[in-house]
């Protein structure tokens, strides 16, 4: 095995659990989550030359995963039978189990909560992944915590 392959596997091994957890919470299916991770690691490998700064491997592959998950979710929503479509009624976040409440959050808040609190990405990493100013990430994270009635540390 080439050195580059070994390095790639090691880098992936360091964060594979975070990637899987992110995908699982986002897609709510272990099979879909595994597929999303598999697809992301494949895309990462074939595009590895585009990663100019190896120190950004983690944020880079996470961004790939988020795109894969978004794509998968939009695809599966298209395939959802019409009777299974959720009602677009007012959402009472505090009346739902936490997992469901997170799922009901607007996507930009859901991703931040997922990364920051379930996968322990730092504020800097999260901002880098989402290509947002840190201040914007902090504001959205505060809003999400408030909606979910979670009292967690914000830093």
């Amino acid at each position: 095995m080439k050195l580059q392959e070994e390095k790639f596997i090691t880098e992936f091994d360091n964060i594979k659990q975070q990637l899987y957890r992110f995908a699982y919470l986002y897609l709510k299916s272990d099979t879909s989550a595994l597929e999303a991770v598999d697809e992301s690691v494949y895309l990462a490998y074939i595009n590895i030359k585009k990663l100019r700064h190896p120190e950004y491997f983690k944020t880079w592959i996470t961004r790939i995963l988020i795109n894969v998950c978004k794509k998968e979710l939009s695809r599966s929503k298209r395939m959802m039978p019409i009777e299974n479509l959720p009602e677009q009624s007012h959402v009472g976040f505090d009346s739902l189990p936490l997992k469901d409440a997170i799922d009901k959050l607007p996507v930009e808040l859901k991703i931040i909560i997922n990364l920051r609190y379930f996968n322990d990405y730092t504020l800097v990493e999260t901002a880098e992944i989402l290509k947002l100013p840190q201040g914007t990430v902090a504001t959205r994270q505060r809003k999400a915590l408030s909606l979910l009635k979670l009292e967690l540390e914000e830093d």
């Binding site: 392959e5 790639f8 596997i9 992936f12 091994d13 594979k16 659990q17 899987y20 957890r21 699982y24 919470l25 272990d30 595994l34 991770v37 598999d38 690691v41 494949y42 990462a44 490998y45 936490l98 997992k99 609190y117 379930f118 979670l150 967690l152």
Partner: peptide
Amino acid sequence: FIKLKQDLEQVPLELEYSATKAI
């Protein structure tokens, strides 16, 4: 939140092979 986070600790064994499969 803590309970949900603990539940998410379980990851499938197949994850071990994701990178080698991708390569």
